[in-house]
Design a protein around this nucleic acid. Structure first.
Lengths: 166, 166
DNA sequence: ACCACTTGCTTCAAATTCGAAGCAGGAGTA
DNA sequence: TACTCCTGCTTCGAATTTGAAGCAAGTGGT
């Protein structure tokens, strides 16, 4: 090893930029579909989908936020919106009085079911169209360790955001 | 084929969510580093990097925006910030009076150079750490066709954003 | 030259995000 | 119990993003 500095060769750099671009474009496409189909933002869809996947249909606020919203206040805001639309219900946890449990409502499940086919169609058509089944499997096997590694390496505590850059 | 509806099997669905999560976490990590190292947002970094890569060090506004900012006004805003910080200069295009050419300044290049090593370190440590060189190559070969396909399939014209959802 | 249409950017109001600060409930120790 | 620290959520102000509307400049047809 002739060089101990961390560095990215062109292959890595290109892969990194492709990754960012692909997800960026995908997210943009999906956001449009979700807005048209159900007047949902992508964040709201992710939250609903998480609740829908849960066996109980509910989550604590904090658990719900992880990986979707990177600030507590952001989740409070989104949960408020979803509740106002009648898609979820918030209630204090039985065991911990501070904690809030968010539960998806029937309306929430209905909206999710209504929106999901179109969502899948977009993802399928945009992301997976040029990939064979084996390609997808390979991709999945590459992403899994990366995902686990990144989950296990949480970012350092946040630095304050500067006011009025310049 | 017993089913003609577009659908995602569990493998695709999991891969899609992993992809979103990985990029989401990566972006979050990188954003922190960029803020600490150079008081740059990720968008600003991307714009600077693009300008730095260009042979002339400049781009028309519209070309600069593609794939980074999804609204014209957003680019105007960011370009204004970068210009206020002295990192870029805006000037009307010679050939087209409406068009604005954005050019990176020496200060912009200097900041880019200052920020890049840390950026690379984060990407390397977060994204590429669990992957072998062959893995990266495989990933690159999977992403390339997807990227090209998504570039070639632009989203439909935007739907209006609803006010006061509910 | 004139006119309608398009293009490139900016300005605007509204929505969403973030980090800091605040507040109430829990947990540990004496 | 009293005291201190930690946790979970909300409120707050500022920054960023977006789509719509506006404006000036280019393009094409007459």
């Amino acid at each position: 090893m002739p060089d101990s500095r961390p560095s990215l060769d062109p292959l890595q750099l290109g892969t990194y930029f492709d990754l960012i671009e692909v997800v960026s474009l995908l997210r943009h496409s999906v956001e449009q579909q979700l807005r048209e189909a159900g007047d949902l933002s992508y964040v709201q869809f992710q939250l609903l989908a998480r609740l829908g996947d849960s066996p109980t249909g509910s989550h604590r606020m904090t658990d719900l936020a992880d990986g979707v919203v990177y600030s507590r206040s952001g989740l409070t805001y989104q949960a408020g919106l979803l509740e106002k639309s009648g898609l979820v219900v918030r209630a204090p946890s039985p065991d911990d009085e501070r904690s809030v449990t968010v539960t998806i409502t029937d309306a929430g499940r209905a909206l999710l079911a209504k929106v999901l086919p179109g969502h899948i169609e977009v993802v399928s058509g945009q992301l997976f169209a040029p990939l064979s089944r084996d390609d997808v499997k390979t991709l999945a096997e590459l992403l899994a360790p990366v995902r686990d590694h990144m989950r296990a390496t949480p970012p350092r505590s946040a630095a304050p955001r500067r006011r009025k850059g310049a």
